[in-house]
Write a protein that binds this DNA or RNA. Structure first.
Lengths: 205, 205
DNA sequence: CGCTAAGCAGTCAGAGTTGACTGATTAGTG
DNA sequence: CACTAATCAGTCAACTCTGACTGCTTAGCG
């Protein structure tokens, strides 16, 4: 620690990049092979990194996966909010919003989260790390949902309950895709959700 | 195979009992330690069975866990339908039905299912075994739900959609308990579900 | 231009897991 | 009561994973 604060610049940058590569690889492997298959060996291979380097940054597998959790929460994984041509018509808007929400559940981060959630159940330290990270994620999801519906609809009375109902139900349905490999865009629940949203928001029509 | 069909009686019985002990142990360990922690060693220990015996019945870990899936589907795990003193008042009945449904998600079989679902995602043979078993489970859940609500309510028009919405949403919420160890009986979503059910079934009040 | 310390590569021992294998046992047959 | 074949107990080799360790490399200081 003699010259701490010096010798940085380039090194810090390299280090940051390497860490990100490792964490991205960890999440990729996590999604592809599940928690138990996400070994440090496979992750280091996926990241194209030597063992020494990986272990230098993340001294243990747990530390690595905990870091992956925070990485997941920090990354702007939900960049679906970029759509700009939302329909004017409220009914149309609701339909599109529900579809956009649902598309959100067909993304890698969703499975990464689920793998982590389940694993956290029987691992105390992972659970401790996951809880705050997951609150962040929850807020992100809510914000995204709001942007899908637009301020005109989100200000309606039953909205926040509807949002919760939709998100929890979609999570419950998305999980079935672990077994059934259907086309999410044609899920039979879509109509159900749209109808629910219409009635919840536009009942006194 | 000389005298196949003979030498049974006692042996078959013993065998059946031993198998059940092993499968019960497998599910217990699965719930307690998660998929990756459910090793054959731990299961044989929990079952109080020698390695030879376990491997005689289930030649591989995969075979054992696939069998555990079917075991789970075959067992009457949801014996909550035994309640007899359902309220007469519809509003009360709906409230109790929702609470009873929700209590269903605070049982070991739920976590066993979730562990298996997630694991099936990256294991072809497990997935193949899980799909039909899970259809059976789905039917059981639906039947249970119906019994909670009673024929008077299940015959109403919006019922089957409501049932699906409640079950998927409850699954989505129950998953958060992997991280947050709250009291399920006080879950804030209960009011939401009750209100939803009331409106869906008794709207033209 | 030598020097220091952190970053990093590659190796390895130890722990844990799986499933094969060798005999012993047991149930039921003739 | 001998005999047969399945059942079962206990051991073990092969493999995998983790994290510690040794030493090389690199960046920046004086």
């Amino acid at each position: 620690m003699r010259d701490s604060g010096a010798r940085q610049r380039g090194e810090q940058e390299r280090s940051r990049v390497a860490k990100k590569r490792i964490l991205d690889a960890a999440l990729k492997v996590l999604v592809e092979t599940g928690y138990s298959g996400a070994t440090t060996l496979r992750i280091q291979e996926e990241a194209g990194v030597s063992r020494g380097r990986l272990l230098n940054y993340f001294p243990s597998r747990d530390a690595l996966l905990v870091a992956a959790v925070h990485h997941l929460a920090a990354e702007p994984v939900l960049d679906l909010g970029s759509r700009t041509d939302w329909p004017q018509d409220k009914i149309e808007r609701i339909s599109v919003a529900v579809e956009t929400m649902w598309a959100t559940y067909d993304q890698p981060y969703f499975w990464a989260s689920m793998e982590l959630w389940l694993a956290a159940r029987s691992r105390d330290d992972l659970r401790a790390a996951l809880l705050p990270a997951e609150r962040t994620m929850g807020a992100m999801v809510r914000k995204s949902t709001d942007s899908f519906f637009g301020s005109e609809l989100t200000s309606l009375v039953g909205y926040s309950e509807l949002r919760e109902l939709l998100n929890t139900s979609m999570r419950g349905v998305a999980l079935t895709y672990a077994m059934e490999r259907r086309r999410p865009s044609q899920d039979p629940h879509l109509d159900m959700w749209k109808k629910l949203a219409l009635e919840a928001l536009l009942r006194p029509l």
